[in-house]
Write a protein that binds this DNA or RNA. Structure first.
Lengths: 344, 344
DNA sequence: CACACCTGTGGGAGCGCTCCCACCGCGATG
DNA sequence: CATCGCGGTGGGAGCGCTCCCACAGGTGTG
């Protein structure tokens, strides 16, 4: 087909063109576009009309070049373990982040980091300051990214923290408190041999959940039994394996607290294999209260953390830090809540 | 706290600085950075060393300004229905897109469009050509975005299509074929009163699945019965409602094909409420083979579509189109596969 | 009535890059 | 021996914007 009628994709109008049409200078147009108050009503009206008539949209690259802002933030997800879809936690964070960002004029860059190579790419990218700030989720203790962010003096907010001495801003849930509530609930239902499947302990969230589990037992004067502690990795597979271990070591257990819903789902599979009924023989509690919790059979009692709200809050903290970088980093802990269903 | 020691965040070196250090001109550095072959080995080595020594990273804004490329693509997800986390389909697309993009040097912008206001924001954004291309998923028949993309002559690839006459490039699964396979499977197991819960019929994928269902019954000379067709919206809630309707209208049904796994999960809840056993009384088949399928009780037989691969393929098509825009748009249909589990 | 001061304005400079043209030196060619 | 071609090179121009300085014109003060 002839493309003779093809017109050069309609060269976009520039600031200059708008200025000419409105009969004002470039400076005035720029002031209107950027919402400066130092513009007369008359000039403003003329400029706004010219903008509308020409369909002017500012060129972000030109703006960036001179302001050295990018009006974009990156959400970095280390996808070390599994796929995004099996971790509803990430999806909920994304939803919250995106929602909160929609009200600002920032764009959301999604960066999944699968391997070393991709981490290097990200490093170069951040060094080039191609974003104004970074949201980092699922932080591990030895994760090199937080340090990089500090070195680059790039505004950043974590979900989770490296340790209790975290220097960057962060948002996380009351992991210890949630775990405590879960175990207390099991105790109150008369369970006595309560096991746990932990998350990866190089993540503070996982360590805190284990600590909460221990506290609750301690409070109730239940003697500690390391045989009742299995280590998982937040995944379904890890939950299944952990549960099998536990059943082998302590066949008499009558409850298990899993540090994620996915692990709880895996644990329930292992229990079913072993012929144990949930909750009659073994009560199960998860953590996250993600969609998975509603799809297990029986539905899973779980510790709800406000994941989406955490995403929103991360954005708010990040915007604050971008606005005034020197300030002390804010660190926020959100409450959790036990959602009781049939599994416990 | 005193910030006396505060140093200006280490002004990043420019092309010019590299050129000076390497003892060459700006042009040569630019050629090296952009991989032009027209550079002598000697000059190249000198430049590369200077780059390493200075830690030079090109300024993307400056580059963009002159090339009018952005090296970014947007993945647009109309989040009309529910949350991201309850739709594993989207997560898998994201995973695939991100993986494929990692090998190119493009960035992924994630844009969730929740309402009219956010759509307008996106429209302005696209008009400003702040991305080199767009991936659009979950396309509805009356969706204004595809038309906008055509008008803007912005490279774009859809997942799903508006109709069989789609003019834009797209990738989708063999929806009709998958549905046919599902229903044939049910027929082969001796089911005779096979119902279906459809997706939103303004999406071609949903319409095609319904068509496939009808074809399979037709081939088997099973008389059509509109009472066995309920309309859902791909969500769990829709599946539950649809199933209740079906049970009310045709209590004798012995199988149901649901156009999504989520609806199948909802349908199974409704069946349980009604005291029907799955699969003994009613066999259930879903569509997507998402993580949900493995978490239902019993595990769900489902039509697998290669969602992640679809994401990757969308990126490949988009890159092609960005490279040479005038070409005919490629349209690809990927095969589906029935994964048999215990629900049917 | 001279002066300072404030609001609103125009436009030069310059952000860091790519594009392109001019030019250099060399070996091959007539 | 003059001419050409060609790989390799330097650097001017310019992308579209913001920043900032200079300046116009009005208002208020001594």
């Amino acid at each position: 087909m002839s493309r003779a009628a093809q017109q050069p994709p309609a060269a976009r109008p520039t600031l200059e063109a708008v200025a000419a049409r409105a009969g004002v200078g470039r400076g005035t147009v720029s002031r209107v576009v950027n919402g400066s108050p130092r513009v007369s009503a008359k000039a403003r009206a003329a400029v706004e009309q010219a903008i509308a008539e020409l369909g002017y949209v500012p060129n972000q690259a030109a703006r960036s070049l001179v302001t050295s802002r990018t009006d974009a933030v990156a959400l970095v997800i280390p996808e070390s373990v599994a796929k995004l879809s099996s971790e509803p936690y990430f999806s909920d964070i994304i939803t919250g982040v995106s929602a909160e960002l929609a009200d600002s004029d920032l764009q959301l860059l999604l960066v999944l980091v699968r391997d070393e190579h991709e981490r290097e790419r990200l490093t170069r990218y951040l060094a080039a300051r191609r974003v104004d700030g970074v949201l980092l989720v699922s932080v591990h203790q030895d994760d090199p990214l937080p340090e990089l962010l500090e070195r680059l003096e790039l505004p950043a907010v974590l979900s989770g923290r490296r340790s209790a001495q975290e220097t960057l801003g962060y948002v996380h849930a009351d992991n210890a408190g949630g775990a405590r509530a879960a175990v207390r609930h099991l105790l109150s239902r008369g369970r006595t041999a309560i096991a746990t499947v932990t998350g990866p302990l190089d993540m503070e969230a996982a360590a805190a959940r284990l600590a909460g589990y221990r506290q609750a037992l301690d409070e109730a004067a239940v003697p500690a039994d390391e045989g009742l502690v299995a280590h998982g990795d937040f995944t379904e597979h890890g939950g299944r394996e952990g549960m099998r271990d536990l059943l082998a070591r302590r066949p008499g257990l009558d409850a298990v607290f899993c540090a994620s819903d996915l692990m709880a789902a895996g644990a329930m599979q292992a229990l079913r294999e072993a012929g144990r009924r949930v909750p009659q023989d073994v009560a199960v509690v998860g953590f996250d209260d993600s969609v998975v919790a509603r799809h297990t059979e029986p539905p899973l009692t779980s510790v709800r953390q406000p994941t989406e709200e955490m995403g929103r809050l991360m954005v708010r903290l990040l915007l604050e830090e971008i606005a005034r970088p020197a300030r002390l980093r804010r660190q926020v802990v959100l409450p959790t809540e036990l959602v009781v269903r049939e599994s416990a």
